[in-house]
């Protein structure tokens, strides 16, 4: 997790195109200026960033299902529940399932578990649009490599 680059997940550990599911992992950094304000003397991972981590996990699933033909942009969040506090240094296990791939939109259900316990969950809607430009797409492909996105699975899915 590199909070300063808004990279909220570390790696993709499983992508199942048949089941339309994905699992990712992330480790909350031990130190960040964010924890100086949130909160002084009682550092906690902000809930909005946990939601972003679920959105990024879901987003990579949508990119995979659409075979890198569309970029998902976060559009709506429903039934978000932040069930317990997440401290610095915490390992996160994230997962998402595609509920529906519509025309120009997609809906996922995502959650985060810490040490086997459900920590937060939400239903997320994305707008799907063509990649804005070649540079944008190239940067997403670079990020895919960083996250160990299984490109080869797209050929077989």
């Amino acid at each position: 997790m590199r909070l300063e680059y808004f990279q909220l997940i570390d790696r993709i550990v499983d992508l199942d195109l048949a089941q339309q599911t994905i699992r990712t992992e992330a480790r909350v950094p031990d130190a960040s200026t964010i924890f100086e304000g949130h909160f002084p003397g009682h550092p906690l991972m902000p809930g909005v960033l946990l939601i972003e981590a679920m959105a990024q996990t879901s987003g990579w699933l949508v990119i995979a299902v659409t075979k890198f033909s569309r970029m998902p942009f976060f559009a709506a969040l429903k039934e978000a529940k932040l069930r317990s506090f997440v401290p610095p240094g915490q390992d996160l296990s994230l997962s998402a399932k595609l509920l529906h791939e519509g025309s120009g939109y997609a809906v996922t259900k995502a959650d985060i578990c810490c040490e086997g316990k459900l920590t937060c969950n939400a239903e997320i809607t994305f707008r799907l649009v063509e990649f804005p430009n070649a540079e944008f797409r190239a940067n997403m492909e670079k990020m895919a490599a960083v996250l160990e996105f299984p490109m080869e699975s797209l050929a077989h899915g």
């Binding site: 529906h100 519509g102 809906v107 809607t125």
Partner: peptide, 9 residues
């Protein structure tokens, strides 16, 4: 988008 999701379903 919400309406489309509900109609699609």
């Amino acid at each position: 988008l919400d309406i489309a999701f509900a109609i699609d379903k």
